[in-house]
Amino acid sequence: MHIHKYERWWLTFGIGMLFIFLATIAFAAFADGINPPSGMQQLDPAKVASTPPFDHPGLHKLHDGSYEAYFVAHIFAFAPSSITVPAGSTVTFYVTSPDVIHGFAITQTAVNMMAIPGWVNMMSHTFRTPGTYFLVCNEYCGIGHQDMAGKIVVQ
């Protein structure tokens, strides 16, 4: 097929840009390990309240000084509703839902994932700057959705 000269330039430029974007994403994924959350662990939504560690959701300190935080997102609140960690801590968040879908997002960080009944989703973040961070459900879950929020306090 005949393709006009300028068109070829334009297409080369466009597709070239796409490849550059893709290469950046691939680099971030493979070299820096920047991947979206993809928790593959399953959990019966009917048994969230009786399955450790979600039966006592909250913060657990590990030997290496980092933290694991287990959250249950349920209508219309997070359990726990707030946690406190020292500045510089790396926290791995685990979240599941016993009822409908919810969001789990901490503003001013890249923590942003879906809480889906039947699954445990996870994501890590290092909190360098002290302050109070806003934890919010950012997926519609029902009539009280706009009240579903919490806090991450970094001291």
Partner: peptide, 8 residues
């Protein structure tokens, strides 16, 4: 992208 249960 932000969902569990689908591999990266």
């Amino acid at each position: 992208f932000m969902e569990p249960g689908i591999s990266t």
